[in-house]
Design a protein around this nucleic acid. Structure first.
Lengths: 125, 125, 125, 125
DNA sequence: GTGGTCTAGACCACC
DNA sequence: GTGGTCTAGACCACT
């Protein structure tokens, strides 16, 4: 489900958090679905439970999951995420990434095609 | 030219590095142009020269600038950047960002329009 | 383990880096093995920790080690090194060195014998 | 004749010196031949004459060239170079380079073939 | 306790 | 004057 990359320079908890975000936003895990408990996850990845806890905490703060004591953690209703923030930081990231791709010689059509493909993949789910 | 954000959780050297990348890839600074010396920049931003040095070092490692002892630092020829790397990490970032935008309820057309606008802005220069 | 030569005109961090590379490529330290922490090494060599940090950073950039915050630094899996680079610079260095040896009157057989001996020494490990 | 690489991190004088060594040891310039004067060279490369002077000085110190006031600089007789130094540093460099090539997955036969090719190329001249 | 970031201040090699 | 190296010492984030 989640694969840690030791070469990755980001802290472990952030890798885990962002991997979960990826699974959620691409629709691989859906609204209401349960994710492994902190302890299960810690066992699976063979790392300290505190690290998982940290990741889950931030996911909850950002509205992606909801943790219920003694029951587990669940993907939050999508409506919650949509209200919870303005998306200007994401648009900023989009602009920087696209500008760099163009600078590095990538074709506008290839970029557009990639964006379209992501959209199609998500719809299909 | 560059504004530091102390509230930003990224290290200072990275803010500087990424701001320069932005200026370069959007065409605000052009191939061959000289950027401020390590000391000038340190004075302008009122931070330690070592921090600027760190930022410039990484920009050079990534192929964006060329630093020459006793002469200064200059924007690298664009051909160096285009050859020097594969763009898969950037495409990965693009996919993650777009997926999250869609998940947060953004419209595909708005995203496409943003991509197009970046392209037009860069071409105009 | 590592001996600094103050008479050497290369910077300290580079002496350290290259000594480690030597230990790694000759098999004296093996994949996955832990190397001394930045502070331990600094104490052992009686130099500033930043200098060690600099050396380790470059070893990591070149794919020889992996540094993990709060855990330590480890010899990278050899597969990472083999994929991560093209070897043309090394072949260039080989050609220059051999050409100079010949110019200085060395015998081709002696050179070949040296190459063979290195190979045997590494295989034996 | 000589091409400077601004991206190269070595000082200019050293690039020049090593390029000359390369031309000499591979036989591209021969014993007794005249090389351009400091001023000619400085004009050709559009750099400061002091930089050329520095390079020539070191070439002379190492026995590769002989400078005669008002006449110019000439490639030294090969016998001079052969006597002038022990070659242990070169063998050290050879061993390090070969060990790294092997570590990076290169084949012993390819390395041997390269060494042989250099030898043949020099003999032919 | 670990690696990473940052400061203040110094010195060096290069051009 | 420029980039690069180094020290001494501090603080932070992560596990």
């Amino acid at each position: 489900m989640i694969q840690l990359d030791l070469g990755d320079r980001r802290p472990l908890y952030m890798q885990i958090k962002e991997k979960f975000k990826e699974l959620i936003v691409t629709g691989a895990i859906k609204e209401g679905e349960r994710i492994p408990s902190v302890r299960e996850m810690a066992n699976m990845l063979a790392i300290n439970p505190n690290t998982i806890q940290h990741a889950y905490k931030e996911l909850e703060d950002e509205g992606f999951i909801i943790s219920q004591r003694a029951k587990g953690s669940f993907i939050a209703p999508i409506s919650k995420v949509q209200n919870s923030s303005n998306n200007s930081a994401l648009y900023k990231s989009l602009m920087d990434t696209v500008a760099e791709l163009i600078y590095r010689g990538e074709n506008l059509d290839d970029i557009m095609a990639t964006v379209n493909k992501i959209y199609e993949n998500i719809r299909k789910e």
